[in-house]
């Protein structure tokens, strides 16, 4: 019975089967994707990691010309109380000389305070330049010893393999001398 029906309605059955085949396959694929996504997403930062995502820093003990390093999200953040010369030097650089074009004003809230993530944008090493006797590179800012990237007094990439300026994290002054990073 079923056999003879199949023969009679062969063409119709074929297209019906193709439809069922595709529909079932599509539902299956969506189901697999829905099941796989939580697995992939479980590898993303967890709630406890995200909870540690902002910190407050008191800037008052930092004298002019001094730098401190604080840890934020497991990464060092460089906070530098810049000297007048450093600010002037950073502001005097013609923008067309830069690899990643950004004026000094765009990188600071207040010109004397430079806050940035102290992670080289090349492959993630910590640049030197926080200690007074560090090699600060050819532009007087920071120098990454891993692959030779030179940053200026605004933390902008000037020479070497790094593609971008040192990242400026989101931060706000909550009073004259305290900032919240993150």
């Amino acid at each position: 019975m079923a056999d003879s029906a199949d023969v009679q309605h062969g063409v119709e059955d074929q297209s019906k089967r193709d439809f069922l085949y595709l529909a079932a396959g599509a539902v299956g694929a969506v189901g697999v994707a829905a099941a796989v996504w939580p697995m992939i997403n479980s590898l993303n930062p967890s709630a406890d990691v995200l909870a540690l995502a902002s910190i407050d820093v008191d800037l008052s003990p930092i004298a002019v010309g001094q730098s401190i390093t604080v840890t934020w999200r497991g990464k060092p953040v460089f906070i530098r109380h810049r000297t007048e010369e450093e600010i002037a030097e950073a502001q005097a650089v013609p923008l067309e000389d830069l690899i990643d074009i950004q004026s000094d004003d765009e990188r600071v809230e207040q010109p004397q305070w430079l806050v940035m993530v102290g992670v080289c944008t090349h492959l993630g090493c910590i640049p030197l330049g926080q200690n007074p006797n560090d090699n600060k590179g050819e532009f007087g800012g920071w120098f990454c010893p891993c692959h030779g990237s030179h940053y200026d007094t605004s933390g902008r990439i000037r020479r070497g393999p790094a593609p971008r300026n040192l990242e400026v994290p989101a931060y706000t002054f909550i009073d004259e001398t305290t900032i919240t990073i993150g």
């Binding site: 967890s46 990691v49 492959l123």
Partner: peptide
């Protein structure tokens, strides 16, 4: 250094690196 290699991938690179780390740097996860 090696996980940061993946940040070179255009557009999605930085997200991939965070996913590889399970955090914002090489950490316990």
């Amino acid at each position: 250094v090696i996980t940061n290699l993946f940040s070179a991938i255009p557009f999605i690179g930085p997200d991939i690196v965070v996913w590889l780390w399970g955090g914002f740097s090489v950490e316990n996860p």
